[in-house]
Amino acid sequence: MKNSDRKMKPSLKIGLFLMGILILLAITAPLIAKYDPYAQDLPSALQAPSAAHPFGTDQLGRDILSRVLYAARVDLSIMVLAEIAPFVIGVLLGMCAGYFGGKTDWIISLAIDTFIAFPYYLLVIVVAFATGAGIRGIFITFMLVGWLLYARVAKGMSASLRTQEWVDAARLQGFSDLRIIVKEILPNVLPQAVVVLMTDMAGLLVMIVTLGYLGIGISAPTPDWGTMIAEGQTMMTTAWWISVIPGVMVVLTGIALSFIGDGLADLWREDGF
């Protein structure tokens, strides 16, 4: 049976479709957006959605549609980039801990337990203040705590896979530990780790947005969904579109990612995982 023979679950299709559109919008933002996202136009401030400004304008007269699209570029790319290193490091360390056990496991588990004890948001805020608000803070913080989740998942799975007879069989073929981890264990751990990645990316996006909202994330005037929500909140009753439109984007991204995660989990569960 090949992968293509199995039916994709509707949730996976919806998720991929939604995420595809969001990414497409982010990439083609310069083509779609009619206005410069930074261009202020005070005379046309706080306009309701219209043909000229489909999602209205903010208090400085900037086009919300253009800003939301450019914010997608910023937020989505940070979301993806900030996950790469923690994902790779977490999975590798977790596999080593699970596979070797003993002292290796003890050291890596100690590191996991130590970092897990830090209150997540407090750490983010401390780092943000130490390094100054902005993207760098997000990357550093996430580098510190993001790998924990993957390490724990990969560790648990590798520890149970290690006792499987096919791992013994691989050793008897004379394979080195490194080769067993990369070629035998990794393909079995990866699906689960990718499912976790999807969920975690949604969480990271919420964190990026929250930091922006609190004013310690991506700083104005760079378009970011979080700062946009913050800017509009005092005018919720009169100019709802300033906050609601970026809010909807956050929700859509979150839904897309969880659908993909669920769908992949279902697909791979049928595979015996």
Partner: peptide, 10 residues
């Protein structure tokens, strides 16, 4: 090995 289901990497 004993267990046919566990002796081949899936």
């Amino acid at each position: 090995f004993q267990n046919p289901d566990a002796s081949l990497n899936p």
